[in-house]
Simulated scan of single mutants.
Amino acid sequence: MSSNNAAAPYYFVPGPSRWPMLGGMSLLLTMVGASAWVNDLSWGMYANLLGILCTLAVLWFWFGDAIGESEKGLYSKRIDHSFRWSMGWFIFSEVMFFGAFFGALYYARTITMPWLGDLDHKLIWPDFAGQWGDTGPAGVVETFKTMGPFPIPTINTALLLTSGLTLTISHHALRAGHRGATAFWLAATVLLGAVFMGFQAYEYIHAYHELNLKLTSGIYGSTFFMLTGFHGFHVTMGAIMLSVVLGRVLKGHFTPDNHFAFEGAAWYWHFVDVVWLGLYVVVYWM
């Protein structure tokens, strides 16, 4: 994290912790609540929100323990290497996570839709054109309008690209030992992420009330909201991570040579930027 103490244990092993179990229970409650919410059960929203709050609380205390261990000088170079490998594999798992959704979008759009609209199915669904954004062959989906790239998605693209630049400037300032500049550009990154989420919330309101585009709007609606929604969730988590790092920068926890917490959050944020570029092209333009 922030210090690599030469006198630290060869490999620090923390004592028994309750946080993994509590984290698993909180995530289970979050997903059960989300499943109930999308199925219109009255308690679903409250269970989902409670699960999210519990998960955030677990993360706060769990990472607080890790920060405390780091500041006590218990972490050696081997721990630093472990953190780097762990973060790398975590981001790889996130690549696979989004890859599954991109794969579902590709399959539905490139294979399923043309197949259902071919000549063999004209006798069953004569009015189905097989074009992306259609209401479906059975006609059970309400009419909706698709989401274009202008103006909000394009503005959000500019915001995220700019946030990647400000984060890189902040990192260079940290490596140069300029704590004030590090904090300023890091705060700018968090602010850009918050503005991004504000625009996405406005986009969802616009989609629901003006385009009649919902999660229930066939395969188009489900893939659109799953991809953009999960990306928005990752932006939110990334902004929280960077906010915690900002607090640690202000407290002087990092040195120019030892600041993996900053680097790990930055890796995650740049990953989120790259995923958005893919979303912007595939979801909004194609």
Rank of each mutant, 00 (worst) to 15 (best):
P151A: 07
M241L: 15
Y202W: 15
T112L: 15
L165T: 13
F128I: 06
V272H: 02
W115Q: 07
S2M: 14
E263R: 14
G229D: 01
G139Y: 08
A266W: 09
T55L: 07
M87E: 01
I155K: 03
H231M: 03
V281K: 08
N258V: 11
F260L: 13
L119G: 05
N258Q: 14
K145A: 09
P14T: 06
V281C: 04
A34T: 03
N5W: 10
E142P: 06
F225N: 00
G130T: 05
A36F: 15
L213K: 01
W132P: 09
L159A: 07
D257E: 10
S76M: 04
F230Q: 04
A6G: 04
P14Q: 12
F128L: 10
S82H: 14
A261C: 08
G51Q: 00
G64I: 11
E69R: 14
P137C: 09
G264M: 13
L56H: 00
L49T: 03
N156G: 06
G99D: 03
G130I: 04
Q131H: 15
V38H: 07
H231L: 05
I152L: 11
V249L: 08
G238C: 10
V32P: 00
V275P: 06
Y268F: 15
W276K: 11
V95I: 15
S93F: 11
T146H: 06
P256A: 11
G218L: 02
G33F: 00
N5E: 07
D65L: 12
P16V: 08
W185V: 06
T135G: 08
F12L: 06
F196R: 03
R78Y: 03
H121N: 10
P149C: 02
L213Y: 01
L279R: 09
V272K: 05
A176G: 03
G193I: 06
L174D: 00
G264R: 06
K251I: 03
V272N: 10
Q131V: 13
G264L: 09
W185R: 04
G177N: 02
I155F: 13
T30C: 02
F12S: 05
R109K: 15
L160F: 08
E203G: 02
D40W: 12
V244I: 15
A261Q: 09
A201Y: 09
V274E: 01
F262I: 09
L165E: 05
D257C: 09
D118L: 10
W62K: 00
L119F: 14
A187T: 05
W37K: 05
L56E: 02
F12D: 02
E69C: 10
L22I: 04
I152N: 05
A183H: 01
G99H: 07
T30P: 01
P114T: 06
F61I: 00
Y107V: 12
H178R: 08
W276R: 06
D257G: 11
W19D: 00
T143M: 13
L56Q: 02
L123N: 14
G33S: 04
F224S: 03
T182I: 05
L27T: 02
L186P: 00
A261S: 13
G130L: 10
T157W: 02
G139I: 13
I52V: 13
R78N: 06
A266G: 13
Y106P: 02
E210K: 14
D134S: 14
W60F: 13
H206M: 07
T154Q: 01
H206S: 09
P153Y: 04
H171M: 10
Y75K: 04
W115N: 11
D127Y: 14
T223G: 04
R84P: 02
T110F: 14
D273I: 12
S76C: 11
W267S: 09
S93W: 07
A138H: 14
